[in-house]
Design a protein around this nucleic acid. Structure first.
Length: 768
DNA sequence: CCATCCCGCCATTGG
DNA sequence: CCAATGGCGGGATGG
């Protein structure tokens, strides 16, 4: 049967391709066509689709265009070549499909091309796997791969047997927020750190093995509760039937993978690290060759899909040891979900937001205090997790660790979910931006170079050669710097992260019992953790830049030097020069008023004092929480958390407590966050809020998505004059501008407050 | 040689 | 019980 199938398939495929290709190829072969713009632009994988689907909405079309321009060209190029040859040869049996043409990435593009990024609720948005498989002429198995990762992002949800519902990117920002949160709670940052550290330790060889094991045992392995599947409030589990299979690896793996990006500062994750972490958070360090290999294979699958979604892109991390494949997050940066007013209508029990600022603030403080005083564990997710794990532990004690137990406990928190509307905008805009970036590469390069010099370190990615000793001192030194240096921009994200607990995103985590045993290790682990990390951090910051550089395949550059410290630069760098400039213009004009705010904000961030003043020790986390895995938060810690992922030790009233970044964020941020918010938000935001909500009656999601874009447009228009012409405008200038203005980075720079305001303003405008 | 990752066997699921 | 799902890893492929 396979025989039959194959031929058919090929025929179909080649068919399409050929038709398409002819035209494109010509240009390629012939210099004339390819303008400077897209030197390589060959036919894109999507091109076929485009044509076929051309009927689709403009949105889709534009997206396609963008895509075409920007990326994935490289992959396809090859394919093209093959085809070309064949063509010339004859119509014989044109090319054998060539592996590339069958790649999951391409397939995924095709798949995605069939549905709009932001489907309207009215549409049919149903996906029939059979049909899709057939239409795309692929085996079903492949479709599952795609759908699974899409499902992990809640871009689709299973309805029934052959049925899936398409949600597009509506839930994306919420999902990412939730994932980020979970990732933080799981101390992924630390785990990454650990692995890296271990890695370099190996270099010394000595008996790294032994030591590693110890380490692992002491804290690394402590990994506790395994994450199972993160769900969003709105869409828990559709078909009851579907539910059971909730925790399957690809889905979960995909989520975890994404979490790694969201949690790490450079937002670059190497395959190796990802695999290690994803593998066994339990039994690590048993270099199970085959297992590792398999994991990597899966990761490639996932990465392909994520790449198609333009959430990540492949890069290489170069260390002294050589280059390693890695992926860089190119998706929307997850903003800290701020309490947004209009919440999603989504199910959860979210208290109606009265005045956002006030409400959120109160909640935050309430949580903190209450938990402290009362042991209101329930509130804090991590606590819940702990409890769960313990329970599981008991249950499981006897069961063999390996045996997968089906019993999963789920934790559910009811929190309000917010759609950060703005968040979505950036996402949208981002893609657009990406395109531009290519052109600007060169420029970029220059920038990056300079930027590099400015910032020194790129801590994150690679561990430095230096032994721990150095680390200690360096770390301390490092700390201060990051704080000062680290600008709000990039790092702002973290802060934003804010109060998980009350944060809008609600999610449910299903724990895997098998991992329960880990609990035991828990306490010890946290005690130990701080020290090692600190070392790492310090070292890194110093040498990191030298040590690693990241390169894009195209050789774009080393865009990402990872360093938390110079978040600002880092941010800017990636963006294209033109973008930047335009962006700035926009900012200025748009945000004149905001400027003050921004400044303040920044100053706050930079100068601890401010923040400190606001919330001194008051925000310490209660012991209970500490138990969970971390310690108290402090005034400074915010910064720390923001600037450096690593952990540091802080002194608290209680004594010296080791803090992990994630924790800090959770704790501190709220406070931090809150203060500014109140001040800034109240006026405008509140007033505006009602209006907005009304407009969005139908579906918050939909509205949120669309509104922003349109608002952005308006904005753009207004500022068109301001925007520098440097940027090339392919098809529609407007869009581009929009992209620029709405850029995530931009958003991130500004304080949340600002964002909110902006949004509102824009919305108002839109509303007429 | 090695990084990727296609392919499809075959165990699970769920209906 | 059978079809739908989806682990998993051999081995092909392109650089």
């Amino acid at each position: 049967r396979s025989v039959l199938k194959t031929p058919l398939k090929q025929a179909a495929t080649s068919h399409l391709v050929l038709t398409e290709r002819h035209p494109d190829c010509q240009p390629l072969t012939t210099p004339p066509k390819p303008k400077e713009i897209l030197p390589a632009d060959p036919w894109t994988p999507t091109s076929n689709l485009k044509m076929l689907i051309s009927a689709a909405s403009p949105e889709i079309r534009s997206r396609e265009q963008r895509r075409e321009l920007s990326n994935n060209t490289s992959e396809v190029l090859q394919a093209k070549h093959c085809l070309q040859e064949h063509l010339s040869g004859d119509e014989y049996e044109k090319s054998q499909p060539s592996r590339k043409e069958k790649s999951l990435g391409l397939l995924c593009h095709k798949f995605l091309a069939r549905y709009p990024d932001y489907p309207s609720t009215a549409e049919n948005n149903y996906i029939c796997l059979d049909e899709v498989a057939e239409e795309l002429s692929v085996e079903r198995r492949r479709i599952y791969d795609i759908v699974n990762v899409l499902e992990s992002l809640h871009m689709v949800s299973r309805l029934a047997k052959n049925r899936y519902a398409w949600h597009g990117r509506h839930n994306l920002s919420k999902t990412l927020q939730a994932l980020k949160k979970v990732g933080e709670e799981n101390k992924y940052t630390q785990q990454i750190q650990m692995i890296k550290k271990r890695e370099y330790e190996h270099e010394f060889d000595f008996d790294g093995e032994r030591r590693n094991e110890e380490m692992a045992r002491s804290f690394g392995s402590n990994e506790h509760s395994e994450i199972s599947f993160v769900e969003l409030p709105g869409m828990e589990f559709r078909a009851a039937s579907v539910n059971s299979r909730k925790d399957k690896s690809l889905r979960v793996m995909s989520q975890k993978f994404v979490m790694l990006f969201l949690v790490s500062t450079p937002q670059i994750v190497s395959l190796e690290v990802a695999a290690k972490i994803l593998i066994g958070e339990d039994q690590l360090e048993d270099l199970d060759k085959s297992k590792f290999k398999t994991k990597i294979r899966r990761l490639y699958d996932i990465a392909n899909v994520l790449s198609s979604l333009e959430l990540i892109k492949k890069v290489h991390v170069t260390e002294e040891r050589g280059r390693k494949p890695a992926f860089k997050w190119t998706g929307p940066n997850v903003l800290p979900n701020i309490q947004d007013t209009k919440l999603e209508t989504t199910s959860t029990i979210c208290p109606p937001p009265i005045s956002e600022s006030i409400t959120s603030k109160e909640q935050c403080s309430k949580n903190l205090f209450s938990s402290r005083g009362k042991q209101n564990f329930t509130r804090h997710p991590s606590l819940i997790k702990l409890v769960k794990s313990i329970e599981n532990d008991r249950r499981k004690i006897q069961s063999a660790p390996t045996s997968p137990v089906k019993i999963s406990a789920s934790t559910d928190q009811n929190l309000s979910a917010f759609p950060s509307k703005m968040a979505q905008v950036p996402a949208i805009a981002k893609h657009q931006l990406e395109e531009q970036s290519k052109k600007a590469k060169e420029i970029k390069m220059e920038l990056s170079g300079s930027a590099l010099e400015c910032n020194l370190s790129s801590p994150e990615v690679v561990p430095k050669p230096e032994p721990p000793h150095t680390a200690a001192p360096s770390q301390q030194a490092a700390l201060p710097q990051p704080l000062g240096v680290c600008p709000p921009s990039h790092s702002s994200v973290p802060p934003v992260i804010l109060p998980h607990t009350h944060s809008g995103v609600s999610y449910a985590i299903y724990l895997h019992p098998s991992q329960a045993h880990t609990v035991t290790t828990y306490s010890p682990s946290f005690m130990l953790q701080p020290l090692p990390y600190a070392n790492v951090t310090g070292i890194k910051s110093i040498n990191s830049k030298v040590l690693n550089k990241i390169t894009t395949e195209e050789g774009e550059n080393q865009i990402a030097t990872d360093d938390p410290t110079k978040s600002l630069t880092a941010k800017e760098r990636p963006t294209i020069k033109s973008e930047t400039s335009s962006k700035r213009c926009l900012k200025r004009s748009q945000a004149l008023q905001e400027n003050n705010l921004i400044k303040r904000y920044r100053s706050d961030e930079e100068s601890l004092d401010t923040s400190l003043t606001f919330f001194p020790s008051g925000y310490l986390i209660p012991l209970t929480q500490c138990t969970h895995g971390n310690k108290a938060g402090f005034s400074d810690k915010e910064k720390t958390g923001i600037c450096s992922l690593q952990h540091t030790t802080y002194s608290s009233p209680i004594g010296v407590i080791p803090v992990t970044a994630p924790e800090l964020k959770a704790v501190n941020i709220p406070a931090f966050h809150i203060t500014p918010l109140n001040i800034m938000l109240s006026p405008t935001s509140i007033a505006a809020a009602p209006v907005l909500s009304n407009s969005c009656l139908n579906s918050s999601n939909t509205s949120s998505v669309q509104n922003p874009s349109s608002s952005v447009l308006n904005f753009t228009l207004q500022h068109v004059g301001l925007i520098p012409a440097g940027v090339q405008v392919p098809a529609n200038p407007v869009l581009q501008h929009v992209a620029v203005s709405s850029q995530p980075e931009h958003v991130s720079h500004s304080s949340e407050n600002m964002n909110v305001q902006e949004e509102k303003v824009s919305k108002n405008i839109l509303q007429l």
